[in-house]
Design a protein around this nucleic acid. Structure first.
Length: 261
DNA sequence: ATGGCTATCCCTGATAGA
């Protein structure tokens, strides 16, 4: 089973690139973030049908929006924190579905703005709420994938220019501890597990020539529960997708599992 | 060349991203 997570930064603008990623990598499951649209545009839906993918979508106009694409039909789709008894999250940042025997989550963690701001408080609370949701709905012995844009670079080796980023919302201890708390549900960071030396990134700012200068962060992660992660045979990031005309600022993150598709 | 922000909408500026 091949899994990809990719923050597309507008599903409309990335239509052709998305079809290219599906054709090139032939994934079984794709978690998308930042659709910036209430639903999949017609041309995207057409591509998915042609290429043999189903879609579970939790969209939103202008901001956020997440989806799960899969060869197998997704069932038991849950949007956001539905059913956890809390207030409805006004941002469409989370969707999950059963896909071929695996519970898949596509997540777009809040950016957090400036450290200490209201947005940062929301970011920390969101991560706590996600962990509580996992605890309430699941056992860590289940095959679960949590993939998405975590907006946290968990290790120093996930940051090319640490002196520039150390004090930002992606790297400060509180943010890292929030993500660690989610991980401690019983999840393995598949890319870190395969490449603990780091130095591989998934996001580069559009500004200041960040990509050619190598000023990247690894903030997009495919987590898997321990047993499922044991079957992981490869983890990589398609940084070529960041090149050329109209790229997303994020590259697709890929993990292969022995778990049957 | 891997290239000097991008995408969206209430659109000619503001907001958000990370």
């Amino acid at each position: 089973m091949r899994v990809i997570t990719w923050n597309v930064n507008s599903i409309k603008v990335r239509q052709e690139r998305l079809a290219g990623v599906l054709e090139r990598h032939e994934p079984d499951v794709v978690c998308l973030q930042e659709l910036k649209a209430p639903e999949l545009p017609g041309p995207v839906a057409d591509d998915l049908e042609r290429l043999g993918y189903h879609a579970a979508v939790y969209g939103q106009k202008t901001y956020n929006g997440v989806a799960i694409l899969s060869r197998a039909e997704p069932t038991d789709v849950v949007q956001g924190f539905e059913g956890d008894g809390g207030e409805i999250d006004s941002h469409a940042r989370l969707i999950s579905a059963m896909v071929g025997g695996v519970r898949v989550y596509s997540a777009y963690f809040p950016n957090g703005g400036e450290v200490g701001s209201d947005k940062f408080v929301y970011k920390l609370a969101w991560m706590k709420r996600l962990r509580a949701l996992l605890d309430a709905r699941h056992e860590s012995s289940e095959p679960i994938i949590l993939a998405g844009d975590m907006n946290v670079a968990p290790y120093d080796s996930d940051v090319a220019k640490l002196e520039k980023w150390a004090d930002t919302t992606h790297c400060v201890p509180e943010a890292r501890e929030g993500l660690k708390h989610v991980e401690e549900f019983g999840l393995v960071d598949t890319h870190h597990d395969k490449h603990p030396e780091g130095g591989v990134y998934s996001w580069w700012d559009y500004r200041q020539l960040a990509f050619p200068k190598g000023d990247g962060l690894r903030i997009d992660i495919i987590y898997a529960t321990t047993e499922l992660a044991r079957t992981c045979t490869d983890a990589r990031i398609d940084r070529d997708e960041r090149k050329g005309k109209q790229p997303s600022d994020h590259a697709p993150v890929i993990a292969d599992f022995g778990f049957p598709a």
